[in-house]
Computed example of a mutant assay.
Amino acid sequence: MIGGLIAGIVLVVALARWFVLRARAKSERKLLESYGRVPTEVNDMRHVRSYHEHALQSDGEHSYIDATTWNDLSMDSVYRRIDTCHCSVGEEYLYHILHDAQVRLSTLELRGMLRKWFSEDVHSRLRLQRILKGIGKRSGSGLAPYLFDPVAKRLSHDWVYGILALLPFVALTILPLSMQVGMGMLLCVVCVNATVSVFMGRSLESDLESLRYFSALVHGAKVMQRVFGDRLREARMGNLAETGGTSKATLRADVDDIGNLGDDLKAALAPYKNMRGVLPGSMHQTAAELELPLLLFKAVFLVDLILYNRTVDLMIAHNLELRRLYTIVGELDTAVSAASFCRSCTQ
């Protein structure tokens, strides 16, 4: 009996492993087939432009190609021809760097090194492509406002949510003293907090989606650091820029400031290393969904609202690291895209 049970478990595990390997092989085959091909997917340029537009407004850079010149040169078509990025960060970042008319030589050398690496090392390229696809593409990453003006995304009067979250405990402490008063207060608090949770959830739905994408970005970057950390340390570009001030120039965190991609990726991830799936669930709940115990608990104690503000506070406190994280992932994704573009030009 026990032997049969063990054999059954082993068989299930073996089958699960086989299906995983089969799916991975199929995914890698598609990646190999698409590499070096002319892209056919048409992107919604409204979302792709988000990062670049926020960068212009925030940093006031004058080294970028202006909109008139960009349109005269049909650069949107050039972008679509080059873009085979695997995540929204790469798409947005590629659009941004194509506007940069004054790129440092050290930056060009780094990009050339990365492009050569991914052109020659198929195994590393496939592993990186799988990680980037895990981060995923959506209708834009939605991260630009958090990168350049996270303070504006923070919920005001957060102390109110803290007090509302404590009221259920107050009602529970009153129950032993007066069942009627305690139950009445508890019911009122549950109704008020659930209403606040649903109402705020609807207004914050796009913001929560952006933070869920942020969570995917952090997870993907952690995998990159673990898999490619040693290799990325070979990409050296001089010393890191000083970060003692708070000026816009200091907060820019372009790739020009990166001295060692491996160590800099590790440093950029440090403030977010303890994150465990930020805001995995949507706060936009219907009355039927609130019957579920977990969702009801989150609504009554305003868990998502409190976590949202804590996450934004983390972004505010470590904004430079966040922007560097975005930049490094963007550089890696665009390097794969550039390698694919160069390959397509030779076929």
Rank of each mutant, 00 (worst) to 15 (best):
M315V: 14
H54L: 13
T327L: 06
D121F: 06
L217C: 04
R22L: 02
R22F: 07
R154P: 12
I97T: 15
S77C: 05
V170F: 10
G4A: 15
S58K: 15
L175V: 09
S141D: 06
D263H: 07
E331R: 01
M113H: 05
A267R: 12
T84N: 11
G90N: 08
L147I: 14
V78A: 09
R154F: 12
M183E: 02
S210Q: 09
M315I: 12
V10K: 03
L128F: 07
E331W: 03
G330H: 05
A241W: 10
V218Y: 11
R212G: 00
R22H: 11
E289G: 08
T69N: 05
V10S: 05
Y308W: 07
L307T: 08
C87K: 04
E92H: 12
K222P: 00
R130S: 09
G330P: 10
A194D: 08
A338L: 14
G262V: 02
V10T: 03
D256C: 05
V10E: 03
S178Q: 03
L302W: 15
R17V: 04
Y213F: 07
A67N: 12
E92N: 12
Y79A: 00
T246P: 09
S247W: 02
S119G: 03
L32G: 06
H318I: 04
R125T: 03
D263Q: 05
A339M: 09
L314Q: 11
D83Y: 13
R17C: 04
G90T: 08
G244L: 04
E205K: 04
A14E: 07
E92T: 10
L32W: 02
V78F: 07
L294Q: 13
I135T: 10
Y79F: 15
G245R: 01
Q347Y: 10
D59N: 14
T286N: 15
R323G: 01
W159I: 12
E61H: 12
D304A: 13
T334Q: 08
D254A: 00
